[in-house]
Design a protein around this nucleic acid. Structure first.
Lengths: 138, 138
DNA sequence: TATAATTGCTCTAGTCACTAGAGCTTCAAG
DNA sequence: CTTGAAGCTCTAGTGACTAGAGCAATTATA
């Protein structure tokens, strides 16, 4: 049996976050000690590790809920789980592409400032005048 | 003079967001018409375009506030503006690196599922067992 | 000019995924 | 048996908006 602090140390999920997940129904409410403190089993530790891992990978809490539901039905086809993972992959790739455009733009902005005062600072001018942008972003 | 809707169309910032920016003190409260509707000048249009541009580039609202303050003092040295832009560039690069790790992990997860049922689905197993990960993430 | 459609107003509350703090109780070590 | 860490519940705050209710003003059309 683990206390909530044990669980936190073993999974890297912060204590208030574990309680929040319980409130959201992502993890079930565990047994309690005589003094009303949460006591977790190994199974609950594993579920929390699953959640932590999925969150690290950027899955939304709703997606995680679906994945947990699916893992409770091991006899069903896994197309849905695949779909969730693939959509997540697409969204990650889109974010990377978007951030690369920002990187290029910021590189230009942050490295071109040779002015001595704000009045002719490239950072400020570039933000004021979209026309100074090499290409579209946002 | 522009109505709030004009401003929205010209800058791409949604109407409620403009009002929210006013509440946050990012844009000043403008003149009002006889019937209490907001009426903006060209200067205010430009400031909002500046904000929009900076938000597109991922600057936090607090950073934008600093940049606006700076642009109101064109005689001062621009080191601070440079610093904000450079920090933003670093943070964007970190996000890209992080997302690339996620991409690699998700690729492995999403493309390796040859099982027919959830029971042996790679997506579910990979999330359950961090040991299946090729390298660290998160 | 009358009316209808659109746009605008304020205000409250909701989103997501937590995080912080107050004020109290229980637990484990010495 | 005491002390200090860890736990409890509850409310409220974060960032950057977004949604909706219930009105008022403006603009376009007949």
């Amino acid at each position: 049996m683990f206390s909530i602090g044990d669980l936190s140390r073993r999974t890297g999920v912060k204590v208030p976050t574990i309680r929040y997940y319980e409130q959201m129904g992502l993890v079930a409410a565990p047994e309690r000690s005589e003094g009303n403190q949460r006591r977790y089993s190994r199974q609950e530790l594993e579920r929390l590790a699953f959640i932590r891992h999925a969150r690290d990978l950027g899955f939304a809490v709703d997606d995680i809920r679906s994945l947990i539901d699916l893992s409770g039905h091991p006899e069903q086809p896994c197309g849905h789980a695949d779909k969730i993972a693939e959509e997540q992959l697409i969204s990650v790739r889109e974010k990377i592409a978007q951030l690369k455009r920002l990187e290029a733009e910021l590189e230009r902005i942050a490295t071109c400032c040779n002015g001595q005062t704000v009045g002719d600072c490239y950072v400020i001018r570039a933000l004021s005048d979209h026309a100074l942008c090499a290409d579209e972003h946002g």
